[in-house]
Amino acid sequence: MKKIPVSMTVNDDEVDIYVPAHWTLLDVLREELELTGAKEGCGEGVCGSCTVLMDGHPVRSCLTLAAEARGARVLTVEGLGGPGMELDPLQQAFIEKGAVQCGFCTPGMLMTAKALLDSKPEATEQEVREAISGNICRCTGYAKIVEAILDASHKSET
């Protein structure tokens, strides 16, 4: 099988690896880099649980070839908090508001929310709901997730 070189930055680490050309970014993250935060749900771009940030934008890592991510800055949920075990305000808000039930959608939700708050620190409820409209959660009914993201957004203002 023909392998191709892929160099990218993943959570501030420079990564230089050889992977099969047909591997997706998700395959590389989970199988090669052992970053299993991003989840494979549908594998077809519908559920959003594999969402990571590529150069600051949320993308479906299951529908992004590793080769297409060459040279990109990739941020996964593992890179979200500060150094050590510090949590990102979004992660803290998800815990405090009870926005996590089974947890499968959580990494994707967090990354989508992160991209939203990075570009719009004072997002409205409507903007939050639109932003996460591509992320499916089958447990919470979304109410707590929306609350948590709004909570994190208000905290970042102060």
Binding site: G45, M54, P58, R60
Partner: peptide, 8 residues
């Protein structure tokens, strides 16, 4: 979905 497909 607006936040995702639109960048790709």
């Amino acid at each position: 979905a607006p936040p995702i497909q639109h960048y790709r």
